[in-house]
Design a protein around this nucleic acid. Structure first.
Lengths: 105, 105
DNA sequence: ACCATAGTTCGATAATCCCGAACTGTCGAA
DNA sequence: TTCGACAGTTCGGGATTATCGAACTATGGT
């Protein structure tokens, strides 16, 4: 159940977070991660048609930017949004993005 | 004084906007463009140490994402944030980002 | 022990970014 | 009207980054 390496809350910077969210696949993964916390990698990407090796890179970018946490749980990795850390470090940032990403247009 | 090609307001999509803002140089350019509208390319980039040919690319990415408008004014290009279009298409998105980008850490 | 599952790593190709050098178009002065 | 300076763009290359198939690792179940 140990967490994979990730930047501390105080070390988060804005540009990498926006870069991580500035990709359609990653934006959708993040949107789903909000709805279904503790999901696994493959579960979040279900139906997107993205190969697993590419997903690994997407999740790494999200993790290194500080957007998600990945904890090792057996042979799964459970993914959670770092909503509290992001809200403290970048108040008002994540909520509008998630809301807009969920809009059907 | 004609504007360079840019996507219509209805055609703006979220991921390219976040991608455009997800670069330290572009984020700073956008931050300055808010403070000093109608600035020229080189004026916005003053002191950043970024070559002009690289700036052209940064401004193109911002323009194609719909973040800025560039109007040709003689031998200058005047740059404006598309604050109204962005506020209508993505309400609540730009303001927090600009505010956070302005924070001194 | 064996196999299936969940993800990672590796390596090669493709796409993208960065920036110097050369270029275009415009303005101001002679 | 020609000249030169200025503001940016285009071009070309090298460097970085992204994608994804194939092989690999590690865990859990039987």
């Amino acid at each position: 159940m140990r967490p994979l390496p990730q930047p501390a809350r105080e070390a988060l910077t804005l540009a990498p977070v926006l870069h991580a969210l500035g990709d359609p696949v990653r934006l959708e993964l993040v949107r789903r991660a909000e709805d279904r916390p503790e999901s696994t990698c493959a579960a979040l990407a279900d139906g997107l048609g993205v190969p697993l090796s590419t997903l690994t890179n997407h999740f790494r970018i999200l993790r290194e930017a500080g957007v998600i946490t990945m904890t090792v749980d057996g042979r799964h990795r459970r993914i959670r949004l770092r909503t509290a850390d992001l809200a403290e470090r970048f108040p008002g940032l994540l909520d509008p993005i998630l809301r807009l990403a969920a809009d059907p247009e």
